[in-house]
Design a protein around this nucleic acid. Structure first.
Lengths: 217, 217
DNA sequence: GAACCTACCGACCGATCGGTCGGGTGTCAA
DNA sequence: TTGACACCCGACCGATCGGTCGGTAGGTTC
């Protein structure tokens, strides 16, 4: 309950996060996690009843962390165009903060059945995920309805933005090789924001008057 | 050597492809593959020496299949803008053809170390992958240099396009829920092409005179 | 009919999987 | 002093992992 107690627990979550993000649920063993933490394997089961619950908690923590960095942008009272740009900034920043986040998010988005979930018992982090996506989609739909966006499909554009951000920060050495620079370096992160926003600005926003909300946060 | 021989081999590849695409390398056992094929487990090792070689062959086949559908678009003698649109059409079609392709490609792009590859022995499909990506990047760089594209970063735009296509067709039920329609249905595939090309057309191409290469192929 | 080949199989191997169990140690409250 | 509890451990469990082995059935070739 006290500090040293939750110390081990947090460390387990940290190690497990880094391992799961790289090799997925099935690719990581509890022995490996324990070794990384510096505990005996059986001690892990003192903090987490099963491997699956450990995995769920890792994902839930990562996704809610990501959600926290998006919340201000989603709540901001700006016109849809400015809010979308700010959302992109926040998403890129959120994904760039921990190299594990994008990979975990990507896994949660396309792996649903790597882990054998009971069809009637959706994973506990799914609600968080659904809210994040819903926020994107609502914002886009709003912008389209207001006429400030071209009449795009909110669903498709949401998919595009997720793919363009989450995939980018999840891609491995090979993706890094494409850019020629380390993906997570500060200037490449900034460049990523610029590229995405310029793509959106030229392709989505209806009128050209530069909505100058460049610096968000 | 004769027809009935390669019959089993192809069936193994098919079953393994569908399983690996859903649950990844570590999440699939040879027993499960054998059961799906309708053979004994030990018979698999008659056709493929190890699990890893089976996996590599599955990936190589899927990626070269994808490469084949992109090749005409990459070789076409058109201006960069028209060629890029045609490439998007081909990529979307190629990914939509088999539901397994996008997931396998995505895994190959961000999982590199799910399988424990010898650092000095890159997986045999990597070359194929590198060529596909290189084709994209070269085309974009060419367009930028010719001034027909805005001065985007070829690396970043490549990442964006891969994310926007591969991720989209790899996303599971949850991604499907976003659109409200089945991702692989013919009209949703067409819509995907339209959305992506309109995004590119508005955001990448420098001048607005409609480069009307709508129908490629 | 002997020799050889491909395709397939069940039985088995050592290793590792997730998870359990009994017990040890330290801390804190009664 | 005596629980009670959190934390941790090594030893162990049945199940499953990738992979091997010896052998069988059928088809060709000489």
């Amino acid at each position: 309950m006290q500090t040293p107690a939750s110390d081990s627990r947090a460390k387990i979550l940290d190690i497990a996060e880094s391992l799961f993000s790289r090799r997925g649920y099935a690719g990581v063993g509890m022995r490996e996690v324990a070794l990384g933490v510096g505990l005996g394997k059986s001690s892990l089961f003192h903090h987490f009843p099963t491997k699956l619950e450990l995995y769920n908690e890792v994902l839930a923590r990562a996704l809610s962390r990501l959600g926290d960095s998006l919340a201000p942008a989603l709540r901001a009272t700006l016109d849809p165009a400015a809010r979308l740009e700010r959302l992109i900034d926040a998403l890129v920043d959120g994904l760039a903060e921990h190299p594990t986040t994008a990979r975990l998010a990507l896994r949660s988005l396309f792996e649903e059945d790597e882990v054998g979930y009971d069809p009637e018992a959706p994973p506990p982090y799914e609600e968080t995920l659904r809210q994040l996506i819903g926020g994107f989609q609502a914002l886009i739909a709003q912008g389209v309805e207001a006429g400030v966006f071209r009449p795009v499909s909110p669903g498709h554009l949401t998919q595009t933005l997720i793919g363009a951000t989450v995939y980018h920060f999840a891609s491995s050495d090979l993706g890094e090789e494409i850019l020629g620079n380390p993906i997570f370096s500060a200037d490449q992160v900034e460049e990523r924001k610029r590229e995405l926003k310029s793509l959106v600005r030229g392709g989505i926003v209806a009128d050209t008057p530069a909505t100058d909300s460049q610096r968000a946060r």
